[in-house]
Computed example of a mutant assay.
Amino acid sequence: MSTPPLPGVRPATREDRAAIAAIYNAAIAERASTFETRPRMPEDIDAWLGKRHPVLVAEEDGRVIAYAATGAYSPRECYAGVADFSIYVAPEARGRSVGQHVLQALLKEAEAAGFHKLTSRVFATNVRSRALLGRLGFREVGVHEKHAPLEGVWHDVVVVEKLLLANVR
């Protein structure tokens, strides 16, 4: 049995807002990868688009099945070259390397946008995401213990980073 081809990856547009919100809302409902509990509306995604920080979607058969987004790490000017990132894959598209594919594209786009480092925080219990990040060269920097509670349970997060060497001067 052959593996299906990898989806196309492109910059997110306003037309993708509902799909991005739906994918994020599925992750919120699962309570395994984000501390957020309030479902997002398509309008909430507007703030992510059209700025220096790349936001990409993976599309298959005309349907968005994953997204990867960067955002400001800090408002301080000295950290302008560092971006936080997140990646979410629709439940039905998991296990097919879609996440790896869209994150590899995000690394290229972030480097092209001039960032020298990407960072994120991953639930310590999210072994699949941690394994993916390790395969792509992210370094686990440390653990923030009891970073935040989710439905009354405190969770540790692993801090990850990756240098984008073309922009390290």
Results as ranks from 00 to 15, higher is better:
residue 1 M to C: 09
residue 4 P to L: 12
residue 4 P to C: 06
residue 5 P to N: 07
residue 6 L to W: 08
residue 7 P to C: 10
residue 12 A to D: 04
residue 13 T to H: 10
residue 14 R to W: 04
residue 15 E to K: 12
residue 16 D to L: 06
residue 20 I to V: 12
residue 20 I to N: 05
residue 20 I to D: 04
residue 26 A to K: 02
residue 28 I to V: 15
residue 29 A to I: 09
residue 31 R to T: 11
residue 32 A to D: 11
residue 33 S to C: 12
residue 34 T to L: 03
residue 34 T to N: 06
residue 41 M to Q: 14
residue 42 P to H: 02
residue 42 P to I: 01
residue 43 E to Q: 14
residue 44 D to Q: 01
residue 47 A to K: 11
residue 48 W to D: 12
residue 50 G to P: 06
residue 51 K to F: 03
residue 51 K to V: 09
residue 52 R to I: 01
residue 52 R to T: 10
residue 53 H to L: 06
residue 54 P to W: 04
residue 56 L to G: 02
residue 57 V to D: 00
residue 57 V to N: 00
residue 59 E to N: 07
residue 59 E to P: 00
residue 61 D to M: 01
residue 64 V to A: 11
residue 68 A to F: 07
residue 71 G to T: 11
residue 72 A to N: 08
residue 76 R to I: 01
residue 77 E to P: 09
residue 80 A to E: 08
residue 82 V to Q: 07
residue 86 S to T: 15
residue 86 S to K: 00
residue 87 I to P: 03
residue 88 Y to I: 05
residue 89 V to M: 01
residue 89 V to A: 04
residue 90 A to N: 08
residue 90 A to P: 08
residue 91 P to A: 13
residue 92 E to K: 02
residue 92 E to M: 06
residue 93 A to W: 09
residue 93 A to I: 08
residue 95 G to M: 09
residue 98 V to F: 03
residue 100 Q to G: 15
residue 100 Q to D: 12
residue 103 L to P: 00
residue 104 Q to R: 15
residue 105 A to Y: 00
residue 106 L to M: 10
residue 107 L to H: 10
residue 107 L to T: 06
residue 109 E to H: 10
residue 111 E to P: 02
residue 113 A to T: 05
residue 115 F to P: 03
residue 117 K to Q: 14
residue 117 K to A: 14
residue 118 L to N: 01
residue 119 T to D: 02
residue 121 R to Y: 05
residue 122 V to N: 04
residue 123 F to E: 05
residue 127 V to R: 14
residue 131 A to L: 10
residue 131 A to G: 12
residue 134 G to I: 04
residue 136 L to F: 09
residue 139 R to N: 12
residue 141 V to P: 01
residue 141 V to G: 00
residue 144 H to W: 13
residue 145 E to G: 14
residue 145 E to K: 15
residue 146 K to R: 15
residue 149 P to T: 15
residue 150 L to K: 08
residue 151 E to C: 15
residue 153 V to C: 09
residue 154 W to P: 02
residue 156 D to W: 06
residue 157 V to E: 01
residue 158 V to C: 12
residue 158 V to D: 03
residue 159 V to R: 04
residue 159 V to H: 06
residue 159 V to Q: 11
residue 161 E to W: 10
residue 163 L to T: 04
residue 164 L to V: 05
residue 164 L to E: 00
residue 164 L to R: 07
residue 165 L to I: 11
residue 165 L to Q: 12
residue 168 V to N: 03
residue 168 V to L: 14
residue 169 R to N: 10
